[in-house]
Simulated assay, not measured.
Amino acid sequence: MAVAPGRYGIWAVRDQLTPELAARIEQLGYGAIWIGSAPPDLRLAESLLGATERVVVATGIVNMWSSSASEVAASYARVAGRYPGRFLLGVGIGHPEATGEYRNPYATIVSYLDELDAGGVPVEGRVLAALGPKVLALARDRTAGAHPYLTTPQHTREAREILGAGKLLAPEQKVVLDTDVRRARALGREKVRNPYLKLSNYRRNLLRLGFTEEDLDTASDALVDALVIHGDAGAVAAGLTAHLDAGADHVCAQILVREEAEYVPALTALAASLELPAGVIS
């Protein structure tokens, strides 16, 4: 069964997500919840699905180095069987800086997808973290689509050209709901500089998009403004919609806040600016 995450979703680290927050996200009209760095047993995904009625839950991502394909396939069968059409398995290779085992990344992805095939995970039930052309093409050929992270609408446009029509393109986009430019940039810079701007996969992709080594080394204003949309809720909503205009089917916002108490108000304000009808998945 194909999974339809709607046009707008929320990406959050797994420690941030609770069943209560999932219910609130669904109530506000978001179409999907993406679990950052999801564990392979998928118990968190199951708890979020159990607390909601319609919203899609996706992993963004299960890391191939730390999660065996056989374990993930068994977990997928359990969750998708209980919640048909509402769970999307996002998997990815991660980064060489994160594991001493990192080697032959492309061959490893292919082998992992082969094992998911053998374990019964359907093509339409999984997406691949993909940035460069080669892995985007693999996402097109072996999965339901791609889930790029730390990208821009320009990347979305280029990714759509590679994926072609009919494949899901669901980029993540960091946002700060704050009209104070200096304060918003400071928060965005803090979140992207460490660890992302130190990771070679992201650096290569950003250089492909036209940023310079100096932009990356200094976390320049131009780079931060591109990677972290900031402003009032209307400006942030427009920045998310730019991904849809560039060819995305779905965009998931990672809302950055200084204090946890700011999170639900920001979530609510953004939903209003996106004109999400409360209680209806969009």
Rank of each mutant, 00 (worst) to 15 (best):
V79M: 03
V79Y: 01
A80W: 04
G81W: 01
G81L: 01
G81A: 07
Y83C: 03
Y83Q: 00
P84E: 08
P84D: 11
G85N: 02
R86H: 01
R86L: 09
R86C: 11
F87A: 10
V91P: 02
G92N: 09
G92Q: 07
I93Q: 14
P96K: 14
P96F: 10
P96A: 14
P96S: 13
P96E: 12
A98R: 02
E101R: 15
E101T: 12
Y102S: 03
Y102W: 10
Y102R: 05
Y102L: 00
R103P: 00
N104D: 13
P105K: 07
P105R: 04
P105N: 00
Y106P: 11
A107G: 15
A107L: 14
A107S: 12
A107F: 02
T108E: 11
I109F: 01
V110Y: 04
V110C: 13
V110N: 06
S111G: 15
S111F: 08
S111Q: 15
Y112I: 07
Y112S: 05
L113K: 02
L113M: 09
L113P: 07
D114I: 11
D114A: 14
E115R: 15
E115H: 09
E115D: 15
E115L: 14
D117L: 09
A118W: 08
G119N: 12
G119T: 07
G119Y: 02
G120D: 00
V121M: 10
P122E: 06
P122S: 12
V123C: 15
V123N: 11
E124I: 12
E124P: 09
E124A: 15
E124M: 13
G125R: 08
G125D: 07
G125N: 11
G125E: 02
V127E: 05
V127Q: 03
L128T: 07
A129Q: 06
L131M: 03
L131I: 04
G132R: 13
K134P: 01
K134I: 09
A137T: 13
A137W: 04
L138C: 13
A139Q: 07
A139F: 10
A139H: 06
R140N: 05
D141Y: 09
R142T: 09
T143A: 13
T143S: 12
T143Q: 05
T143Y: 01
T143E: 04
A144K: 10
G145I: 05
G145N: 07
A146H: 04
H147C: 06
H147Q: 13
H147R: 12
P148G: 08
P148N: 05
P148H: 03
P148R: 08
L150P: 06
T151M: 05
T151H: 01
T151P: 00
T152Y: 05
T152R: 05
T152H: 00
P153A: 10
Q154R: 15
H155Q: 02
T156F: 00
R157V: 04
R157D: 01
R157L: 15
E158T: 14
E158I: 12
E158P: 09
A159Q: 02
A159F: 02
R160E: 03
R160Y: 05
E161T: 14
E161H: 05
E161Q: 15
E161S: 14
I162L: 13
I162P: 08
L163G: 03
L163S: 11
G164A: 11
G164R: 06
K167G: 06
K167W: 02
K167M: 11
L168C: 09
L168V: 13
L169Q: 10
A170M: 14
